[in-house]
Design a binder for these strands. Structure first.
Lengths: 219, 219
DNA sequence: ATGTTCTATGAAAACTTGTTCACTGTCAAG
DNA sequence: CTTGACAGTGAACAAGTTTTCATAGAACAT
């Protein structure tokens, strides 16, 4: 892939950051202001370059409408590599149902209408059996970014009584959110693990769907 | 909170779905087309209602710019934590199944070679069995630490032809190791993702057991 | 020397989009 | 019966936004 220039990279990063923080894309003028360009056309050119280089997709005519094209490593040479498959010691799988997506900071929104897929989750050798009610949730948004749980990750949620400090899947306004549970005396708070988000969300009535015990990331 | 009307709910859902699918918000006219309104003002009214009811935040003057506002419950007194299970649809809650009966004979991973040099994954290359499927491997060692794959993690390995840049489970000297595959022309190298380890390991013959597609971490 | 790419300015055109105004109809509650 | 919330039509406006056009210097390879 063609390399991005420094400015192009900076602009792309800013756009990503903006979307992540505000949940909508910046306008060309937003970018212009951020980088102190005197003309919108400076930004326009960079956006064109970003699209030409294949890392950004613009929707012609539409305002604040873009898509990020995931960057991948190139190269397609062929090498003979033999596949052998797993040996006897591979860890067994367990089926865990997908309960939907989870709202963290930004675009959740797929929401839990219906079970999507069943996820193959490795059964960890330590806990030989997972609680039968475990389920998987795909994480959307960045509110738990400081806990290293990012957009696109999948968390395995298990039932149980959460302790102080546990990361829980909690039902707020019909949407499942992932937050850290904070107990202070008799009060209970939910805390997002992202410096950009408000510290504590006070709660009176709280529906906990389970405790996030592990997180699964695409490599 | 105030209840949403059916149409309001439908519009909100559509907006969420749109953002989830396209990564940008729909315009008022997009919504109008979707619901076959004759006037944009029909949508406008609903959006106002959604904002008034506190589930949607509009950014005045900005196009395709919204935020979903998770309702913050009021504070005071006692906090009740109720366990409910995975979501509003009972489907996810009930349909958890165990895939295999394979859960019987686990290998013991507590002790393997105590070498930290490379990622030591005990995978005995014995009888190949059934169709190539994904399998999980417990990671030992820190050779992939820069790729955020750490000791104790579990990687999900899938069969397939690895590309340049893929992280593969490769058989080296009778042991399965996790490394990044580097192709340079016709040559193939394995690279540990740890600054403290030698950069490239040249290979002549290579047995790939699969491509590490995701990693699972205990929280 | 010369052309090309990258970067940028400045202005204006063209289109998209949110917003407002005037008006109609339904339906349940008081 | 009236009132008020809800849902909608139709048109038009104003602002927001992208896009185009004309112009030009700096860096760089041919």
């Amino acid at each position: 892939m063609e390399e991005l220039t420094k400015k192009q990279r900076a602009i792309l990063d800013y756009m990503k950051a903006h979307v992540s923080e505000h949940s909508y894309w910046p306008s060309i003028r937003d970018i212009q202001a951020k980088f102190r360009f005197a003309s919108t056309n400076a930004v326009f050119g960079h956006l064109q370059a970003l699209e030409r280089k294949g890392v950004l997709q613009r929707i012609p005519g539409a305002a604040r409408a873009y898509k990020i094209v995931p960057e991948v490593l190139g190269d397609t040479s062929e090498t003979v590599i033999r596949y052998e498959g797993p040996g006897d010691d591979a860890i067994a799988f367990e089926n865990v149902k997908f309960a939907g997506s989870i709202a963290a900071g930004f675009p959740d929104y797929t929401e839990s209408s219906g079970v999507l897929d069943s996820l193959q989750v490795p059964l960890s050798p330590s806990s030989r059996r997972r609680a039968p009610e475990s389920f998987a949730l795909r994480v959307r948004g960045d509110s738990m970014i400081d806990a290293d749980i990012n957009d696109g990750d999948t968390v395995i949620v298990e039932p149980g009584t959460p302790k102080h400090g546990d990361i829980v899947a909690a039902l707020i306004d019909g949407e499942t959110t992932l937050k850290r549970l904070i107990k202070q005396g008799s009060k209970v708070y939910l805390k997002a693990e992202n410096q950009n988000y408000p510290d504590l969300i006070p709660t009176t009535s709280l529906t906990i769907q389970g405790i996030a015990k592990s997180v699964m990331k695409r490599i």
